[in-house]
Amino acid sequence: MSNQTQAAWSKPPLIKSPVLRYLVVAGVLVYIVTAVLSFGINPARIARGLGRAGEIFGAFLRPDFISRGPQIWEGVIESIAMTVGATAVGVLISIPLSLGAASNISPLPVYLLCRAFLVTIRSLHVVVLAILFVIMLGFGPFAGALTLVLNSVGFIGKLLSEEIENIDDESLEAVRATGATWSQVVVFSVWPQVVTRVIGISIYRMDINFRQSTVIGLVGAGGIGAVLDTAMGRYDYNTAAGILIVIIGLVLGGEYLSSAIRRRLT
């Protein structure tokens, strides 16, 4: 390597100052070490757990759908019922809400109010929502369905209001210029431009709701997750494996169906 020749070339480093470069590397290393130490990894406990790991993986080879068959079936039906009900109610609530949360068609106070509401419910994790509803309403699918409704409203409201804000301004003006009222503007200009997206988002949300319905059962909000939780509590790994396989199958089926329908829409 002749550094004397002017023609030498090497790739310029990402961080120019060498001091800063080494400080960044050192900082990252220190962080990794402290964090890993804080995990309190207990090799003895894990070594004992590995036996159980074998048991769990073995259970996946011999999944048991039969001995708890009625409960699994019940759980699946419950999850689907929660999904359907929550999606329908969620869509109905979020349509007016997203009109309100679109800055191009709503007055400022309404806009701010709707936006604030959407941000608040979006910030609550679905499991936290589920815990709150279970405490208020008791165990079961009703708490789960309400959880999913609120979660759906946050999701659909955000996507749909952004969709409305992105519609063509000129067509809005054109309809307004005819002397149309606010509701006429919504019906003749806003709705036709977003209707396919509303259907698309709703179907997508249905898919997500089903996924969520499998997990909120862990905190008592009904559905297949509750059945899984019971099986795990009994250390009945064969049934648990069976339930997991059912969940994976249904989630995949739902995803396939949802994307197939959405593809046909466009």
Binding site: F39, G40, G49
Partner: peptide
């Protein structure tokens, strides 16, 4: 079930 409860 395998590692015991905790961060890990």
């Amino acid at each position: 079930q395998i590692t015991g409860p905790g961060l890990f």
